[in-house]
Design a protein around this nucleic acid. Sequence first.
DNA 1: TCGTAATCGTTGGTGTAGCCAACGATACAG
DNA 2: CTGTATCGTTGGCTACACCAACGATTACGA
Lengths: 146, 146
Amino acid sequence: MEGIPERLAAKPSWLITQLATHARRLSAAGHEDARAGAYHYRILAALREFGAQSQADLGRRGNLDRSDVVAALNELAASGCIERTPDPADRRRNLVRLTDAGVDQLHRMDRSLDRVQDELLGPLSADERATLTGLLTRLLAHHRTS
Amino acid sequence: MEGIPERLAAKPSWLITQLATHARRLSAAGHEDARAGAYHYRILAALREFGAQSQADLGRRGNLDRSDVVAALNELAASGCIERTPDPADRRRNLVRLTDAGVDQLHRMDRSLDRVQDELLGPLSADERATLTGLLTRLLAHHRTS
DNA sequence: TCGTAATCGTTGGTGTAGCCAACGATACAG
DNA sequence: CTGTATCGTTGGCTACACCAACGATTACGA
């Protein structure tokens, strides 16, 4: 079987979306023991690095829709990873706080995600990995601000 | 608002999946006048470059599940872009053929997708674009064969 | 040659990711 | 005080990537 149509193989948008599918597959496999998905990781990461904050802030920092934050927080609360308390300073908001169990969960996911990066970048040298992440970071910053 | 958590921003898997989301958004915007999606383009591209072939072949070349090929072909047939005829040499198969209208549709989508690549790669120089596509191509080939 | 395996198109699901609209409650600016 | 904005929440949607199973057909091996 001859390979993939040139029209596809030559398009960066094809390369990126196809590689993203592989990245998702690898991440899902890495997370299967943690029983958590990408949304949960983004939230735990934002909580760890920026401290207790509102659900809206979590959504902005992790690039999540407010409604998706709600669902993910429900699951994280059910497994004891976070706690929701009304913000006394602004009664519209919930203050979301990371529990010790949440920190443990984050570290577990960190370790499996580190392994995932290695599988994902497979054949690339350290220099090439740095070049790639540099280019991707610039592109992402461009699309985030424009 | 401080930016994105370091844990995320530093991970190639995050960069790739996020950039893929932007790529999908741009592509969808480009395709909105064509009333077709990525699946349709992959099929049209495979038909154009490899000629009339079975639905299973289309799926393998465009990296699509057989069942998704069925649905996309139903829509492409409804808009007159392809024709399905039973393969006389193997009565399990359908021979899918590209019509003139299908060629036109493919060219329309080609043009908008070319514009999409430019928006997607935005700030990168020609050299950087070549470097990026080279790295992505190597990674994709690695994950396709392994 | 006969029976088993493999392939094909099709139907009908599943799960994830990224959205959007609308609601009541609350905060804030004029 | 009145409008505007934000917050959490509910309920929905689309696209994309899959999987299992079925009847029909073909290929292959004993």
